[in-house]
Design a protein around this nucleic acid. Structure first.
Lengths: 351, 351
DNA sequence: GTGAAAGCGCTAACAC
DNA sequence: GTGTTAGCGCTTTCAC
């Protein structure tokens, strides 16, 4: 079978109809079509019906962006979201919270992943700005968000979520990281533990530092000295957490409880305890929830974030700004909660 | 403290600069700015430098959509993605696969959740069409996708992912649902099981039916009769799956192995087995992976989908169409793999 | 190399 | 009620 050069079927690609086409078919002026499509008043119902019929017959879809060019408010009805990664379950849930509020306002969400690359954060914002989103929700990754000021000045509001922005006056919505961590440690102490270890994420991440602060505060409040050998920050992944736990267990006086400050770290901790066969002796509370955390034995006690609430509140703040709220910047703290499922209730040594 | 009406600080909202502003500041014509911004030839490097300086000073960002109005290819460099929910980890991973390919092509992704609402699927596509996305990736929810044909005819390609479209000729990328399910059951049979139960999702979902087909095929191939009491489709959530397992265990001759056809169902199954204290006797293989699936005891044996691959292939097909590929529709099947972690390797009764 | 004029699809302002 | 004109920010065409 041969294919002759001239015979390539060109995609029929019949041009998209415009308001002009609809107007011509309905026998009215363009402005009348515009009025009908936008539900404006001053159109007789007979004319409106004709226009709607013509629009339906042509499968007319108004071009939102073309309209925005001249429209007074120039709204694209689109929000820009910058997150670590859309594949990250935490980010996905925040995204969902935002989307729900956005949809209620007739808005769509344009999400861009930055994979914890500081430069990608700026690129993402630039790309969103070129598309003229009406507002930004940003999870800060770089250590300076001042580059966002231009957009705020031009009337495109910015709300930061999960982490606080630096060098930028902007609304922000964060979980109570310090309080959550403190509650976790207090819970362990209340169950009789005095040697509580801290395993955390790399500390270039703001939230990692805050959770460590919470740990330190709770230990101090309980009048317990912190053995520096039990504090292990800077764990980038699951495997390093597993290794760290094995080192802790080999200590002459190992910890009797572990506070793990992050999802992936928690997975590594549990693995290590299981490998050592000590998951029923050493207590463990993790920050962030783990799917199937209640199926592990013992069930994983966790400090869970209200991800949906984070997204919802962020979107609400953004829409308030879009509605003209010019008040001072707000800082919303969304509470975390401790879910006890077994691993955190293992009792420490009797005094 | 009183606030006088006239004193409300209006958000300074200084208007966004346009090419005209840049041209004026640089002392050149608008077209020259256009040429510089778009990297077109025929501009002296001296002029280009002047323009770039002016653009930087004003923080000029070209309006992508305004340009598209007149531009020959009219590309918005934006893809529309319609998924069940952005909070669904499966969808998030597919999204990520798409985004990675899109980013490499300079594209952004506009994602809309439909929460399994058939009408929301159409609304989502309409909203995306109004924003003039260059192509669609859709996870079909409704039982008819013919409404998408208009877009294809107008040159906006559509690729379906995860589920096959109905009433529409379009490229599609799906996991090997039947083969995956068959492999799971074959695995159980190979470990000595003859009474293998099937627990599945509501069958309005296409993939649920396919996985059941795979189960039936594997049982038939092994020469095993299927006891209809062991086949329980239509489980909407975790709790119903738990209840179903308890009923199965109460049977005079209960199953010795369970094939669970969906993530949430698997969680319910494991819970039931743990409650009954029989998680080490009754084998279980689940379709879809579960986070922390290897921390449960015994580890969860699962049929895992290549979510990233699904997204990547879908995006690749879409870009091929955007690049002018007018060939016949393609159907890409992404293989699943079976990950053995313990629960699926529990041996059945000796013959 | 450069710029003026026209026009993309739509809405604002003002006519009738 | 309805249509006409201008113009949004940009690219095209084409003249210089």
């Amino acid at each position: 079978m041969t294919t002759e050069p001239g015979h390539v079927t060109p995609r029929s690609t019949r041009p998209r109809p415009t308001m002009r086409d609809v107007a011509a078919l309905a026998g009215v002026g363009v402005k009348t079509v515009s009025r009908v499509v936008n539900g404006e008043p001053n159109v007789s119902s007979a004319t409106a019906a004709k226009v709607r019929a013509a629009a339906a017959r042509l499968d007319f879809e108004p071009d939102l962006h073309a309209g925005n060019l001249r429209r007074r408010d120039g709204r694209t009805r689109t929000l820009g979201l910058v997150v670590s990664s859309v594949a990250n379950p935490f980010a996905g849930q925040v995204h969902r919270g935002i989307e729900r509020v956005a949809a209620a306002h007739g808005y769509a969400v344009l999400a861009v992943s930055v994979e914890d690359d500081p430069d990608a954060e700026v690129r993402a914002v630039t790309e969103l700005a070129r598309r003229r989103v009406d507002g930004f929700v940003v999870t800060p990754v770089r250590d300076d968000q001042s580059y966002l000021a231009v957009h705020v000045d031009r009337g495109t509001p910015v709300v930061c979520v999960d982490r606080e922005p630096t060098g930028l006056e902007a609304d922000r919505v964060v979980s109570s990281h310090v309080d959550g961590a403190r509650a976790a440690v207090r819970h362990l102490v209340a169950h009789g533990h005095r040697r509580v270890a801290f395993l955390g994420d790399v500390e270039s991440v703001q939230t990692a530092r805050l959770r460590r602060d919470g740990y330190a505060a709770a230990m101090a409040a309980a009048g317990l000295d912190v053995d520096p050998r039990l504090v292990v920050p800077g764990l980038p992944d699951e495997a390093s957490a597993t290794a760290a736990v094995h080192r802790l267990l080999a200590l002459p006086d190992p910890p009797t409880a572990i506070f793990s400050a992050r999802n992936t770290v928690t997975l590594g901790v549990v693995r290590a305890l299981q490998q050592a066969g000590r998951e029923r002796e050493i207590a463990c509370v993790g920050f962030d929830d783990v799917e199937a955390g209640d199926l592990v034995v013992p069930g994983l006690t966790a400090v869970v974030q209200d991800t949906d609430g984070l997204g919802r509140r962020a979107a609400e703040l953004l829409f308030a700004r879009l509605d003209g709220d010019a008040g001072p910047c707000r800082r919303v703290v969304v509470p975390t909660s401790l879910v006890a499922r077994g691993s955190g209730e293992i009792r420490g040594p009797a005094r």
